[in-house]
Design a protein around this nucleic acid. Structure first.
Lengths: 204, 204
DNA sequence: CTCTGTGAAACAATTCACAGCT
DNA sequence: AGCTGTGAATTGTTTCACAGAG
């Protein structure tokens, strides 16, 4: 997988949707149908699938389970990944409790915060932020979710990168300045809301 | 504003960054500098700015405050928007407490949930979900954040759309099937994590 | 010489249209 | 007929390269 961000998201979406179809016992799907579910055109979907050995059947469509397997193989990475979360406020707690990442093979194994008093009601160990560095080194953690208050974002990011973190999902609105080597993915919910509010027409 | 999602996000990012520069008392910025902060090329930034009457000064760069004002005008919408949130669990509570939307002129004015017992510690009224429909109609709410458990996502979405909601920020992993007229923006944090994990190289 | 504004070129994504299989 | 696979055409985006202004 070495494509654009957009195409990676399309592939993740195919997998997500095919898993639902599979779960519902639907065994076959046409490019038309699947494209409709993904909000794109049948052509575009077929173009995406061209990177695989021809797997559709004319007049019929695609075997859901077969397509799913191919897509998963294409996107594959090490099967289970342990990640940590920096900042266990409302947001961080929500993410820890929200176990839905597990089905993607992603496990939040520890949380870190300055305030230890809060949040004892989660089933993942919460440590003082001073311990993050040691933890990252000891457990070879590669990815961290950053969910601290905006003001602390930059300095915490520097700390965890120094300790060995290579990938950060930044949920704060801060702009992070880090070594080029570090991959940062910013999610700014304010932008997502603005986007909805700005665009006049319907459709994504 | 009638551009691609990507370009809208770039513009929102320019505004975000320029506001920070402004706040720091930085008055002038070159396309080179600003592009660096945004993780894109100087050319691309200048192309984006071509839609405005020439505003940069050769040898100098752009006046931060002036550029900021133009961008804001370009993107403008009604100055204050009231939105609601459906689902006041961990996630919903986090969003309500996270007041950072206010500076974008976006205000969460009410939350709705099936479980009224929880979450009395927020400064926004929380109502039973049965009241959502009336509230939307009475207050002419256009946008809702959907933060319910995945299983309820589809049925709640139908309900609020029936009541008049036209735009949904869907924070559940569910795929929503709704009238074409309704704009849906899906944020799936699992995808964001997967994306970080998949891509081998550095850089976004 | 420095930095913007902008055409032109290169590259990427999307849509069209249709041949070919069943 | 119904649906895939795929070149060709179209449209969109990014990069290049340089004229022009201070």
């Amino acid at each position: 997988m070495s494509d654009s961000k957009q195409s990676v998201y399309r592939f993740l979406n195919y997998i997500n949707i095919l898993e639902r179809l599979n779960h519902q016992g639907i065994m076959v799907v046409s490019s038309q149908n699947l494209a409709g579910l993904c909000d794109l055109t049948a052509s575009q979907l077929r173009k995406d699938l061209m990177k695989f050995p021809s797997i559709g059947r004319q007049k019929v469509g695609y075997q859901v389970s077969e397509l799913l397997e191919m897509l998963k193989k294409e996107i594959k990475r090490d099967n289970f990944v342990d990640i940590i979360i920096i900042g266990v406020g409302n947001f961080g707690t929500a993410l820890i409790k929200y176990q839905s990442f597990e089905k993607y093979g992603i496990r939040i194994v520890a949380g870190f915060d300055v305030d230890m008093s809060a949040r004892k009601d989660v089933n993942v160990p919460i440590f003082h932020i001073d311990k993050a560095s040691d933890y990252i080194k000891a457990n070879n953690i590669e990815l961290a979710i950053l969910a601290v208050p905006e003001k602390e974002a930059q300095s915490e990011a520097i700390n965890i990168v120094k300790a060995g973190i290579r990938k950060i999902l930044n949920l704060t609105p801060a702009i992070l300045f880090l070594d080029e080597q570090v991959r940062v993915n910013n999610v700014n919910l304010a932008y997502e809301l603005e986007y909805l509010l700005i665009k006049k027409g319907a459709k994504e």
